[in-house]
Design a protein around this nucleic acid. Structure first.
Lengths: 247, 247
DNA sequence: GTGGTTCAATGGTCCAACCAATTTCTACAC
DNA sequence: GTGTAGAAATTGGTTGGACCATTGAACCAC
């Protein structure tokens, strides 16, 4: 591996319009101190200000959208989805497979590893504000559970996200979010398992208790138990639908 | 899916054009059995065949380019850079300020989680052949260590990869590989730590012993110790280079 | 062969519309 | 005044056509 040696003849870069657009845009975001959720200028305005075609602006924004940095809503505008800075490092990862049961189980193994570590880190690092935020999400989730008599995937997900955020490492949320999306794609046809996720309910509070008590190993253990219930539900669903031999 | 003689590039119908374009293209790549390095149809042809504007084709290809799946060469064509399949899971990771020490530590936290889980799974699932392969890599690494009196990142990496493979889940290798690449980019300016990685050496064999003994919790614990030594080396390097306050 | 020239193919950029979803404003009924 | 349905403006999505810049192959002079 020839590291440490710069290429004596690096290829020259003549045209890189959309790259330049992204650089300018990143600088703009920083100057205006824009954060997640905030709206950035119209494509037409960007095109005019940067003196490039709207098409070029669109290609640049398409790249950011693909990286999950930005969300475009037709008729509304383009919104920041994450913090952007001029010195970001992108690591697009595409994984083959994942639509079948085995693929889903594989993603769940990754999630088990990350969920446990995130919970443990969270127990170490979460401050008072973060703990309060997690408890707020937990209360909302429990309330939804009791009023609807079942797990609500929306509120459940919000709870987990608040844990990832409090871990102090945004990569946890990024990676698990990608997998969560896959989950939803699979899940659109309900697996025929009644009370799916029901068994995972109590562990949400035990995880929170460990986090609040700053007990990393306890949080890790409870998180592992939670994932185990999901794996179990999934296996039941697969058996129901006879998906095990699907390719 | 019994398509007997379907048009390899059927026209697009629904909204969400560029997504549909990518889906159609992925199907086309599969039918034509195209692999990395091969050229795919020109934008103009794709636009005509899919009954879509060339701009839409370009937006779709821009997305693939951003994901590293495809490379466009002006005047030449668009070439596949990786295997694509209709059921891919995209996991774009962006590291804010990926050049600094904190960013590197964040990737290491992910690696710690995955490394430990992979080692544990490996201890459960590795068969005789896998164990033999891991031991072979370990021997090579130890031999290189003694002959060169220091860690060899190449052989070290091969050992770890063999563990990931034996975990039975290819996602471990893919994700950690991406982070490993990031590591190397950072490493191009050596951190000025002599004997970097030296402390991690003995744990390679202890991990192997646990795997061979099918002791998942032991393997997990040893893997965590190994990562801890790397983190420690990294902190020493950061202190040396006074990178801690770099933004 | 070597080195230029020409020329067609291909991705990159631009423009000017129009479409579709969303938001905002307005006018009307009550 | 209030509420609401509908018109109008805003904004991203798509189209078609044009031209530029780079590439690569065929061709030619030497």
């Amino acid at each position: 591996m020839g590291h440490g040696v710069t290429d004596p003849l690096p290829p020259i870069q003549t045209t890189a319009r959309d790259d330049a657009v992204l650089k300018a845009l990143a600088g703009f975001v920083r100057q205006e101190a824009l954060g997640p959720g905030q709206k950035l200028p119209t494509e037409r305005i960007l095109a005019e200000r940067l003196k490039v075609s709207r098409n070029t602006v669109r290609e640049a924004l398409t790249r950011w959208e693909g990286l999950g940095l930005v969300e475009r809503r037709q008729g509304s505008g383009t919104y920041l989805k994450a913090a952007v800075s001029p010195d970001m490092l992108h690591m697009p990862l595409t994984l083959a497979g994942g639509n079948d049961f085995a693929g889903l189980m594989r993603t769940l193994e990754i999630r088990r590893a990350l969920e446990a570590e995130a919970a443990a880190l969270c127990a170490v690092r979460a401050g008072k504000a973060e703990v309060a935020e997690i408890e707020r999400k937990l209360d909302i989730m429990e309330e939804a559970f009791h009023s609807r008599a079942g797990m609500s995937s929306e509120e459940d997900w919000e709870f987990h996200q608040s844990v990832y955020r409090a871990s102090g490492n945004p990569l946890f949320e990024q990676i698990i979010s990608a997998m969560h999306e896959l989950f939803h794609r699979f899940w659109e046809h309900p697996l025929g398992v009644r009370d799916f996720g029901h068994a995972s309910f109590p562990y949400h509070r035990t995880i929170f208790d460990c986090i609040a008590a700053h007990d990393p190993e306890g949080a890790r253990a409870e998180a592992l138990k939670l994932i185990a219930t999901v794996e179990n539900d999934l296996k039941r669903g697969a058996a129901n639908l006879k998906l095990l031999d699907r390719r």
